[in-house]
Design a binder for these strands. Structure first.
Lengths: 194, 194
DNA sequence: TGCGACCGAATGAACGTTCAATTGGAAACT
DNA sequence: AGTTTCCAATTGAACGTTCATTCGGTCGCA
């Protein structure tokens, strides 16, 4: 049953995976549908069985990738642990996701800076954003953070983690838990109440 | 003489300016040469009098924009003032540049995440990067900063400032000097020796 | 008169998308 | 159980459009 479901989706997934890899390598405009088809080992027409157009293909790839990031973020989240531990856990998860999924990180960064992002309202992820924002708000209310607009915190943290992950990856460094902690410490020290 | 020089370059500049604005709006693949020509009020063929191809046009636009950022960064830099003041001055300048040149910021962000950046060696700007890195090194040696790999500091700071500038701009906020200082303070507190 | 700046229609390649045809496998029927 | 029916999945050649680039020609100035 599960196997059947996977079989059913296998081509769709292959198309999405190929799109992710090729876009990381050649960018949006540098990856024709024909190349995606070839890489995914399907015919060009097959892509249009699963996606209306190249644009919706990319938007659906964004949704899938963003959801993967969300899931990775939440892994091991434990409401009962101290706030600072939860914060560090979230940061570690995010940084690890970037390091372990370079194509996903590159794609997300390209996407958010592209016109696609403007033309596509985020819909359901708004709920997630509100969860994150309320998490920051409780950090401010609890006296852990400076009194910063909580909507500013998300992008700021993302900016730092992405920059650090990019650097680690481009330098081909073997990363360790110490590395990660060093970067997360920069974020924490930056926004914590002094 | 200067006037003649400006006249000589006016179409070239118009092409570069139009490219910047259109790419911010529609992205790389969304701005055809014909549209650039129309916006710059020149014929399509004229672009090829100044640039070999669309790719070199974009690369030269990157060089010009990056040099504008560099110049803005260095404005009012005074070697004789205290280190912390110089650091804050640099951060203010960078943040102000982003806020006041949104198309430039968006373009730079798109560019660094695009395949162009990989295929084009940076050449001369390496000198500038080394200046920045040695500035950070002296911050570490002087005991102001944590002992972080100085090559990590540049991108990390850029990530924070870009994220903050993006947020300010997207929220249509009137920004004030206090705003800027708040963001710079996050950067400073993050990397300073505790 | 010569030359660089400039024009814009023409060119041809590349691309996203379509579609008529084929396959395969599951239900419906005998 | 075998046969037919049916439709979703898949194919890849073909289509029409878009786009970067070219090129023959005009203009204006030295």
């Amino acid at each position: 049953m599960n196997v059947q479901l996977e079989t059913y989706n296998s081509k769709r997934d292959a198309i999405l995976n190929s799109t992710l890899l090729l876009i990381k390598e050649y960018g949006f405009h540098g990856t024709p549908m024909s190349q995606i088809a070839k890489h995914a080992k399907v015919a060009a027409g097959t892509i249009y069985h699963y996606f209306d157009s190249k644009e919706t293909l990319i938007i659906e790839l964004y949704i899938r990738t963003r959801d993967q990031l969300t899931e990775a973020l939440m892994e091991g989240y434990d409401q009962s642990t101290p706030y600072k531990d939860r914060f560090f856990k979230l940061m570690h998860n995010q940084y690890n996701f970037y390091i372990q999924n370079e194509p996903a990180m590159v794609f997300l960064e390209q996407y958010v800076n592209s016109p696609f992002a403007k033309n596509f309202p985020e819909k359901d992820s708004i709920l997630f954003k509100e969860k994150i924002i309320s998490f920051f708000e409780s950090g401010i209310d609890g006296g852990y953070f400076k009194n910063i607009d909580p909507r500013l915190l998300g992008p700021t943290i993302r900016g730092t983690l992405v920059a650090a992950a990019n650097f680690r990856l481009s330098e081909q460094m073997i990363y360790s838990e110490d590395d990660i902690t060093e970067v997360v410490q920069i974020v924490w020290d930056g926004i914590k109440r002094q």
